[in-house]
Amino acid sequence: MTIKRYGAEGGQGTGGQHLPFSRAVEAGGWLRVSGQTPMRDGEVVEGGIIEQSRIAIENCTLIMAEAGYGLADVTHVTVVLTDARYFQSFNKVFKEVFGEHPPARICMVADLVVDCKVEVDVTCYKAP
Rank of each mutant, 00 (worst) to 15 (best):
M1L: 14
T2F: 08
T2E: 13
I3W: 05
K4I: 01
R5D: 01
G7A: 00
A8G: 08
A8P: 05
E9T: 00
E9N: 02
Q12T: 13
G13V: 06
T14N: 03
L19H: 09
L19V: 10
P20V: 12
S22D: 05
G28N: 12
G28I: 11
G28R: 10
G29M: 04
W30M: 10
R32F: 00
P38N: 02
M39N: 01
R40A: 04
V44E: 09
V45C: 01
E46V: 04
G47D: 08
G48A: 00
G48H: 08
Q52N: 07
Q52S: 11
S53A: 12
R54W: 10
A56M: 04
I57K: 01
N59C: 05
T61Q: 15
I63A: 12
I63Q: 09
M64C: 08
A65T: 06
A65S: 11
E66A: 08
G70K: 13
A72E: 13
A72C: 09
H76M: 09
V77D: 10
V77Y: 14
T78H: 14
A84S: 08
R85F: 10
R85Y: 09
Y86C: 01
Q88M: 07
S89A: 00
F90R: 01
F90L: 07
N91T: 01
F94S: 08
F94N: 07
E96I: 05
V97H: 03
G99R: 15
E100W: 14
H101E: 15
P102D: 12
P103T: 11
P103Q: 10
C107K: 12
M108T: 12
L112Y: 01
L112G: 00
D115L: 06
D115Q: 11
C116T: 10
K117A: 02
V118T: 07
V118L: 11
C124W: 08
C124L: 09
Y125E: 08
A127W: 06
